[in-house]
Amino acid sequence: MSTNNSKMRLMKGDITNTEIEAFVFYARPDLQLGSGFGGAITVRGGASIQEELKQYGEVKVGDAVITSAGKMKAKYIIHAVGPRFQEKDTESKLRTTTLNVLKLADQRGIRTLAMPAMGVGFYGVPLDISAQVTLSMVKEYLRSKTGLEEVVFCVLDNREYNSFYAQLAKLGQK
């Protein structure tokens, strides 16, 4: 889907192993990389990424910080601390988190960015809410003046893909 001069794209794969300038990691407030994608970042990118994160300390929900991507294919990782485990105001916090990710990417002059299904899975954000909130936020953002040329939604499986695809189709009709 194209918006102004920017594109939104949907793909299936491992976001930590994608050819892209920057990708988003859905992080914990203490910024410990932990398991899951965090483990993949540590193994593929190296221990320097966790070291870089030390400068930020604890981060509040909604905020995002940036590090290099170590030895990974991407150049940067945006660590976004979104809502988790049915906490209050999940939807509005997810909106804030998404917006802060996009702003941070712009500040750093990033042109291509990959985002996961934000908060879906382990952190329990419902798939339809994640798809609806993040896709509409990104579409709206790309209408404004931005250096972002492409935002790729990199999802894990058919279940996530189908939900995001359906939402993307809805947005395309608007």
Binding site: S35, G39, A40, R44, F122
Partner: peptide
């Protein structure tokens, strides 16, 4: 688990399986 109350090991294995497709964090 739905509110994030679980033993640490359960969290680690669950997150691995959600995000990397297997519960031991084995990379492709």
């Amino acid at each position: 688990v739905s509110v994030g109350v679980m033993p640490e090991g359960v969290a680690v294995a669950s997150k691995d399986q959600w995000e990397l497709g297997n519960q031991m964090g084995v990379l492709r």
